[in-house]
Nucleic acid binder design. Structure first.
Lengths: 354, 354
DNA sequence: TTGTACGCGTTATCAC
DNA sequence: GTGATAACGCGTACAA
């Protein structure tokens, strides 16, 4: 059904073919397709009918060649090993949020994952040289990733989903206030009477991890609780690190843990099951993210919710707005977080006792 | 540093500019870039120097326009909700395998996720109309997804990572023998003396899920064990479904569970912890996939390993080979599986007793 | 071995 | 309102 096109066998139709069939010129067809004015209703209808009939779609390469726009954006994940270390839904959720918007705004989405076997520089070059995208969303980059410098120098549009700690004046981002959110989470534990509060951190070379640790310290300081480095386990954003972190804490006298994300909290629960610690009786636990799994654990997880899919969606929207010139850099968007109180922090037990 | 290009301010360089700077014609530059013969070593060196100096990269849109190749492939995930239901690393691992090869073979990777809020048909149209890709890898599609019919009619190159159950003569795929693998897994349980073997299935509208159930039945039949539908819990490939499935089985008198993947097995373990069932003492458990998590559980999970990243990598390689005309459709690749015996099936306990 | 000239399918800029 | 025609940047027969 594709080739009523006797003149050009085996080739997709082009504007010229449609024009011939509709009895108009190529320019008119172009005008119809791009919804330009100055086409008589009658002509427009005729042309649209032919387009419909032939299922015609303009050749994007030809279009790109003249418009300099590809209608595609890229997602760059430099720190892939950390981002998808296995059991964490964060990455998938982010992708879902991003593609929801790119779909809706008629853009394609290119995926760039850094692999362990290609070095940082060749990865960067590949992205910088690729001209099939109008802009980039960068996720899970180390805070000092040189990629940013190059993107800025090349004048590329880009948005991150983490707080940048360099080039703030050039960097657009969508994130949450990790410092404040972590502080609130830890203050909640303090409010429940916990004093020996440990934390298992996320990757500290990613600003999400860094900031949540700062929030933890802020909360302790505000409450006049001395900082004890024995209660701080530097780790990474995944379940196994949570598991190992909990094992390290075992003999260190603590009564609560702030896990830098839910995957870590899951590992903690698992380790606690093995060692016979009860949550929240023996220690309280608070996570971060509020992924699906939080409600499927026993005990159900108290956690700081952040809107991950929305973060992706807003980043995509922002990026496309920048590309289309609707906004100027830098744009900074902070999405709200919310403490979701469930069983693992022991709040309800405390309530009941009161 | 991009614009030593006084004649064309604010524009990227093109072949003509490089040619001028190197004192040759445009075609010669083109020949150098495409590694064609019949260029004198001296000229080649001169041109390469200029290209290097300017950091020149040919415009891909212009290239695509004439070569009809985009050097990009797409990944299509129609059943996204099932594929990334949260806690399963399958999807991420597959993406990693695919992008490893696309990177290596200098192709870009486009991502197409179906969302709940766009209907199947508009999703399909979007993919079929997009001409920025030379071919597609389709993952996690329902066995009768009409997408396949349309791809074939449109003459598109595509590869699936599941056994197709229609259009076999047109469909290239890379997968494992799920029937045989599941059968082996269940036979292992039978060999350990288990007779009341339950299964919690994956999505039965995906051939992976369907085939693993068939393998389960085959094993029972071969051993003369009657099929008991009370022991078959139709579910989906995720942890929560495993958790719920286990709860359903609770009072049904079973001594083993074959979980259709590791995520399901994880849910089973969690439920068993809550209800006080011991694994493998009270029942044996075997999973499928051998994701990272299998070794991080207690008990460590006996599971049928399948090479997920390699599946993605081989699919990408195959697809690009088809695009480049190095192979003819249909190609069928089956990768090996391997039963990894750990603690959850109780094999070691049995051994010890012998 | 190198250069010329044409075509790829659009959009944009003119005339009419 | 509509239709020629010139870009856009590249590959490629063909000529030299």
């Amino acid at each position: 059904m594709n080739n009523h096109n006797s003149a050009r066998p085996n080739k997709a139709m082009n504007l010229e073919d449609i024009a011939a069939k509709a009895g108009v010129s190529r320019s008119t067809v172009s005008r119809v397709i791009n919804n330009e004015p100055y086409v008589s209703p009658k002509t427009r209808a005729k042309v649209e009918a032919v387009i419909q009939e032939e299922g015609f779609t303009p050749n994007p390469a030809a279009r790109t060649l003249v418009t300099q726009r590809t209608k595609a954006i890229g997602i760059v994940i430099p720190h892939i090993l950390n981002a998808i270390s296995g059991d964490d839904a964060y990455f998938s959720t982010l992708l879902r949020g991003i593609t929801e918007v790119t779909t809706q705004r008629d853009h394609a989405t290119l995926l760039w994952l850094e692999h362990t076997n290609d070095n940082e520089e060749s990865f960067r070059r590949r992205i910088l040289q690729n001209r099939m995208m109008d802009g980039l969303i960068v996720a899970s980059a180390a805070t000092n990733d040189p990629l940013f410098k190059h993107l800025i120098e090349a004048g590329r549009h880009f948005v991150t989903v983490e707080r940048p700690n360099q080039f703030q004046e050039y960097t657009n981002y969508v994130t949450v206030n990790n410092v404040a959110a972590a502080q609130t989470a830890v203050e909640h534990l303090i409010g429940l009477g916990r004093r020996r509060i440990a934390t298992i951190t996320g990757n500290l070379n990613i600003s999400d991890g860094e900031d949540r640790l700062i929030g933890y310290r802020n909360a302790l300081e505000a409450a006049g609780i001395p900082y004890d480095e024995n209660l701080v386990i530097p780790a990474q954003f995944n379940r196994n690190q949570g598991y190992l972190g909990m094992k390290q804490l075992l003999n260190r006298n603590f009564d609560a843990i702030f896990a830098a994300n839910d995957a870590i909290a899951l590992g903690v629960i698992q380790a606690a099951n093995e060692t016979g610690h009860r949550i929240p009786e023996d220690f309280a636990l608070v996570g971060f993210d509020d992924m699906n799994i939080a409600t499927q654990l026993k005990p159900q997880l108290t956690t700081m919710r952040q809107p991950v899919a929305e973060k992706g969606a807003r980043a995509a929207d922002l990026l496309i707005d920048l590309i289309e010139g609707k906004l100027e850099s830098p744009q900074r968007i902070l999405l709200p977080t919310e403490l979701i109180i469930r069983a693992s922090c022991g709040a309800k037990a405390v309530e009941a006792r009161e």
